[in-house]
Design a protein around this nucleic acid. Structure first.
Lengths: 329, 329
DNA sequence: CTGAAAGCGCTTACAG
DNA sequence: CTGAAAGCGCTTACAG
């Protein structure tokens, strides 16, 4: 079916070795032979089989990427950016949805063995499946799951710094009744720590309005409770919740930020564009991915953990004086 | 470094062939030998090298996916859905950003040769690079670029049907001054054809407000012109333009759909959630991707073209009576 | 019940 | 200037 070196050699009446001398343009081949080989290779449409080359060379340009498939904006952007960076450095990303249990993890690593030397977990694996990673030939980079292992390097993003900056901004702009809405553990601890960090400065938070989900609908459904609480500022665990609240505010003529300041988390791409534009806490996507590529290039150390921080992005939904910060695109 | 069959055989004091009999659990091996092999394999952590297996078996589970990396919602969702469907059928997607010229196309196909048998172009290749595809060992599936070749099968989505349904709905609900905004060729022809299809029914369109880009900012910038035109309905070439217009309407107290009905194209995920929810024309993502996977499974025919249609999704931004269709999530 | 050997398509040290 | 051969790690027809 596909044309091999041997095919070219036979057609050119030379050995495989000489065909390679021609194709590689190395010395030790008569100009006539060289011309003949190149003509034949071109005519037959010879394309080297990279799988065979990789096997022989005992190396591989493929990097496994495990990442959840749903379209959560920040995850999509993180993944896209990583693919881009990997390709720019000559790596080929191989994609998989997250395996759901230990058996699926094993199946995937077997399917990829000999093909990927490094695997990046952009999604968080089931903790029960982590121990077994040590048994696979690959090296692993774990994003946001703090696990140590002989062939695991974990990169973690501290949620607290960006949340602290967000709360601080609210307080400095005179907000006194700050409530949180959502159900995500890292946000809860970040939120708490923000108030702890601010010490004297901070009035006690109003508490939390829990949600079942972290989506638009849940934010919309939580809105009446938030309004009823008398809060003058609300921090949502994710931007999608905040978007649901903004819809409710729009429908009920609640002015944001005049009546209530709104801040989200994740810095979804739409948050720049919604009405009003949504303040949010952003992940250090570029920095994180840059480090991942570096690790893949230079070797992945085991038993290592690297930390990153989030950052507050202020927009109209939490502006002190919206007239001064017009809600322009 | 990594453990091979030979390592296991040596450690178990048996031949490679017998090791395989144990691992495959096939007949012709004494229970004692079998137990010994399994124990040794487990202890050494043997994992078969799939690259070597694929080479020997002359087949590959890898499918190349060429897709642009920017976060345009509909493209992201299309790609995610395809990866999901491929994995469910046992294929491994290999990702690449679009090559920019003939040399890059060649480089990529060489890098993937012997590794992928099928390559799906989710992005549209530079037409100048299409001819050379015939020279590569892979089979190609081209989405939305109507090109015929011995190893190319193209799948195309007709934009017109969904646009026609959208315009028809506007007219039947009494809109008479319909304008288009955007700069995309397939939308222009779809828009024209909609009016042609509707014949007597349709008043002449108001014309078009062209944009340079197809993003939120461009939609926001085009808004004053649209309002000045006196249109009572506007069709945007992409949802992002419509989102920009909605922001302008929100800021200038223009009621949508009471003052002006708004329809977009692409059915971005946020369009269900914006204020008001945006009517749009949707791509047949699931159907298209289902067909792609089928082709990969059953063999990709050359010189073939398959067509699909878009569909109108009605929401509050073009509702006849918004009170009857409340703008709920 | 068990093993030696060919071959997938490539790379490269070695020999002439 | 040129080629025979080993070996990457696997699968499998064949032989004993």
């Amino acid at each position: 079916m596909s044309v091999t070196l041997k095919d070219v050699a036979t057609a050119a009446g030379l050995s495989i070795r000489s065909v390679r001398r021609a194709l590689e343009n190395t010395s030790g081949l008569s100009p006539a032979s060289r011309r003949r080989v190149l003509a034949v290779a071109d005519e037959l449409g010879y394309v080297p089989n990279i799988a065979a080359r990789n096997l022989r060379m005992r190396k591989t340009p493929f990097v496994g990427l495990i990442s959840s498939n749903h379209g959560i904006d920040v995850l999509v952007r993180r993944r896209f950016d990583l693919i881009d960076k990997l390709e720019k450095r000559g790596f080929n990303p191989l994609i998989s949805n997250p395996p759901e249990n230990a058996a699926e993890v094993a199946a995937l690593m077997r399917r990829w063995s000999g093909i990927t030397a490094a695997v990046v977990w952009l999604s968080q694996p089931d903790p029960a499946t982590l121990e077994q990673l040590a048994g696979f030939p690959q090296k692993f980079i774990l994003v946001d799951s703090d696990f140590s292992g002989p062939n695991c390097c974990s990169l973690t993003v501290d949620r607290a710094p960006g949340i602290t900056a967000a709360i601080e901004t609210l307080i400095l702009s005179g907000r006194r009744r700050i409530i949180r809405c959502g159900n995500i553990v890292t946000r809860e601890s970040g939120f708490r720590q923000a108030f702890r960090n601010l010490g004297e400065l901070a009035p006690p938070p109003l508490g939390v309005i829990p949600t079942d989900e972290s989506d638009f609908e849940a934010g919309y459904a939580a809105a009446p409770g938030i309004v009823a609480s008398g809060a003058d500022a609300v921090f949502f665990d994710v931007d999608r919740l905040a978007h649901g609240f903004l819809r409710y505010a729009y429908e009920h003529r609640i002015a944001v930020p005049q009546d209530i300041a709104v801040i989200g988390f994740d810095d979804d791409s739409f948050s720049r564009y919604c009405c009003p534009a949504l303040s949010s806490v952003a992940h250090p996507l570029g920095e994180l991915n840059g480090r991942i590529v570096e690790l893949i290039e230079n070797g992945i150390p085991g038993h290592t953990s690297i930390r990153f921080a989030t950052e507050f992005v202020e927009r109209a939904s939490s502006a002190v004086n919206p007239a001064v910060r017009p809600d322009q695109p």
